[in-house]
Write a protein that binds this DNA or RNA. Sequence first.
DNA 1: ATCCTCCCCTAC
DNA 2: TAAGGTAGGGGAGGAT
Length: 1006
Amino acid sequence: MTRPTKHGGTSEYTFRDYMHNKVRKLDEQGQCLRHQNGQPTNPVPIFDNIKVFVTGYTQPSAYELRQLVYAHGGTFLHYLQASSGLVYIVATQLTPQKIRDWGQSRSYRIVTPDWLVQSVAKGKLLPWTQFQLQQLADPSLPSLAQAWGVTDHRPSESATTTADTLHLSDNTRVPKDPTTLTKGQCEPDHAHFLQRYYGSSRLHLLSTFKVELQQHVSHLLCNTHPSASDISSLKETLDNLGLPTRCIMHIDFDCFFVSAVIRNRPELQDKPVAVGYGGGKSSNQRTNCSDIASCNYVARKSGVKNGMWVTKARQLCPDLIILPYDFPAYKRISKDFYTILTKYTSTIQVTSMDEAIVDVTPLIHQRLRLKYSEEDSTTPTYIALTDYHSICLTLAKEIRRTIFETTQCHASIGISENIILARMATKRAKPAGQYYMEMNKAVQELAALPVRDLPGLGWSHARRLRSAGMLTIGDIQQQSLASLQKLCGTKLGANVYDFAHGRDQREVRTQMLRQSIGTDVNWGIRFNTHAEAFSFLKELCVEVEQRMENAQVRGRIITLKLKRKAAGAGEPEKHLGHGWCDNITKTFHLPQPTRSSDELYKICQRLLGNMHIPPGEIRGVGIQLQKLSGDQDTDPGTSGMIPISKFFGPKTNYSGSPDKPDQSTEGTINQPRTPPQQMMTVESSDVGSAPSSQISRDVWRNLPDTVKRDIKQQFIDAQDEAKRLYLSTHDENSKCTTPRSENMLYTGLKSPPTTQDFWPSPSQIDQDLLRTLPPNIQREISIIRHTRGSHGLLKPGQGKVVPLLPNGQSTLRDTLAGDVPVERTTEPDISGAHLHAAEEAIEMEPLTPYRGVIRLEDIYTFPLDIRNQVLSEYFRPRIVPDSLSPSSSEVTVSVPCKSAEIVQLPTYPSLQGHTTLEGQRQWLRQWVREFPQGAVSSDIESFHGYLKQLVIHKNLERVTLLVKYFKLQVKSAGEQWAPIWHEVVTKVNHHVLTHYQSPLFQASFM
DNA sequence: ATCCTCCCCTAC
DNA sequence: TAAGGTAGGGGAGGAT
Ligand SMILES: Nc1ccn([C@H]2C[C@H](O)[C@@H](COP(=O)(O)OP(=O)(O)OP(=O)(O)O)O2)c(=O)n1
Ligand SMILES: [Mg+2]
């Protein structure tokens, strides 16, 4: 029933795009290989004109295959590029996403490595069809021949009759008796559903392809030299003349999905056209609630809008022609689009498939210089505004022309000196035009536009503004900052205030590091049984595992998100839609970063089980992982085990207070808080070596009670719970056994059954409480809360107009408390219910006797502050007996204890012995203060080295905090510190860039 | 004050 | 038929 694990130890080896710097070397080697191997056996090489791309784990390895290909005259691609022509993709296993992406394209033929091996063995090129990857021959998938034989790329063309939806009314597929419905029986259906669903979802395409575009761009830009733009910068001249110092362009295809589809159909150009499903013959003409993804400008004249339901669009525009999607075309056009942009600038913000923001300042400056400096190369002192504008507009026309010539689709370009004005200008530029919006005309030009035209103001905020009498941007311009902040919140309010006046300081953001990864399905979810729900959940876990594998990350916090049919909600208007729902989420903190679908499933299974939702009421399921860390984190070479008993070890001579380690030692004669420089020698040897350490019972004893309690709690919550989950699910035999592993040591901690286990979060309890109420009261409460507009479920046009209350983000708790005149007195009741619900949960899932185990990595599961406090006790230099070498970096506390309890601790990176944020900040402050004339390079190196460690461990959070704090200190320090600051940040950015293909800090920050 | 957690909101 | 995904911003309110 469980499919074989696809990600065994060997599969860690994959070719990653980000290894591109190695790739060039490989290519050079490839050239050599060709020569070394001499003549191929045939006069005409076997793989002549054959392009091969190897992906994933293969046998023989990608390296060996490359040799084979080169030796026989083929081309070995290190990357898949849209323009490569026919490419043979060699793989033994493909992710569903890749099957979706590649399986539909005629440019790709997906084969097993055997094709290469056998061809060489036979001395001739064997028919590739005999080596077609079996995964693709799966009957649920479009056969390759089918996919390639069809001229129309419509995803619907490849539809089969099974697994359309999870609407399992078809009895032939699902046994009626729930007890006989094993996971194995419904799993394939769900896998196919997911596959098909994502393959057909435009929003999925939009979301996932963005990542690929970012990679595409950064890959293209990696090979370009950093532009020598600074040399030709005219910033000063322009500044003096009061001209804009930046040139930002917002480039956006006109009705993208439509343009791409009708580009070769001139007869449709002046007809109202939309793209979406629902254009089919058998589609319900009455209530067709399928979305219009995009409509052209002819259709818009009738009032049709993107995202509108087909029914409504047809009402507005009876002649509307609805064409199907062409996903492959969108992808190709999009990639070409971004490729073009990289020819003009390297400052590109990927907004979406059809939209980008670029900073073309350097190019504009270069052209200005060309125009204004006659023969000599002196910097001009005067530039006319009209010239400046015309140069910008000319460039925009140029870019637009290139885009059109390449893609046969029109894009429009808005230009200005900042992002918001460029965006607003685009609206004016459309369709098929360009427009420069000047700052000093912005207020006037924006005034008449509806508030919704400001980015960031969606339906919900527009409604609030409307109720405050604001309909247009002009209305917003009349408002004070404070009043806007009251309506929209501090940040958005401030933004809206500035944007309405055309002010915007934001930089064009190049690729940013991903903070979370997840999958949602909120369509087609109709479960009959729990088994179906769990089976589907398992599929989602597999999906999310594969996405994490692709991204080479693991996550530490897992969130299960469900949509549950709201009390009183009927079958939604939209076919198989989620309709009016309550959202329910549960999160779980994993003991260590993971991506294993099995582990994820064990958690999700339990989380879902504890929600106690009738399967028939589930309308949507999603899983996301947060606190991501790169794969480097789980380097087995550095990990060791800490027995938890260390906390209860024998007494030590250490007597400092661990609570506030840095303060506690301050002022004492032997205090370790030596000035930064003196710490260096000790510290530098610390990094990279593993100091042995023993930990005393006293350390534990001296921890403040609150910390002790929290640590215990943490163990109970995270370890005990997690391990129990791992071991007990679906396996009665393992339920009461204590896990043993070479890597694990007993904690010695009895796990007192506590009500902390399975305590749902307060917001969940509210849900649970609600469910216990009589249906009519449920309905009332639901109506109350939904009329508050708090869940974003009441969509425009779908619901009734409702009164607005100041805080639209009210939760049920707020609603209950706020609506009842007795104000907050309802709260204790809820708390009571809370307890009650918790007890119920425990009753349902009785605790089993369990002895916790902990791996070293688990220390990272402590709350940040506790973790740091505990670890700082390990590694902070402290007063040690004379017998111990003071010059040694080893932090050793003499502790007599059983040998089994002595463990080798890994190197834990520290900043001059400091592991707490507070300690490190203090060190930084002292460092900067004590050396007003600048720092010694060794100290800089120390700081930098530590930051580098953090980057490797992907603790970018700490990096950011430290760098920000450092910036603060540097600001108030002497001039000498500026270059130091710059050096550090530049280096850190470089590390982050090489590790994660994106910088951490924007240029403006530095 | 400053965090963390649990949501809602927004964009395409 | 239909395919309402996904990641980041940020606010409220509790913990520290
Ligand atoms: N609710 C929506 C909005 C957009 N899209 C898709 C289809 C659009 O073609 C594409 C780009 O979105 P835009 O907002 O740029 O809209 P268009 O490109 O269609 O029109 P225009 O940019 O000319 O206003 O995203 C979608 O599927 N569903
Ligand atoms: Mg567009």
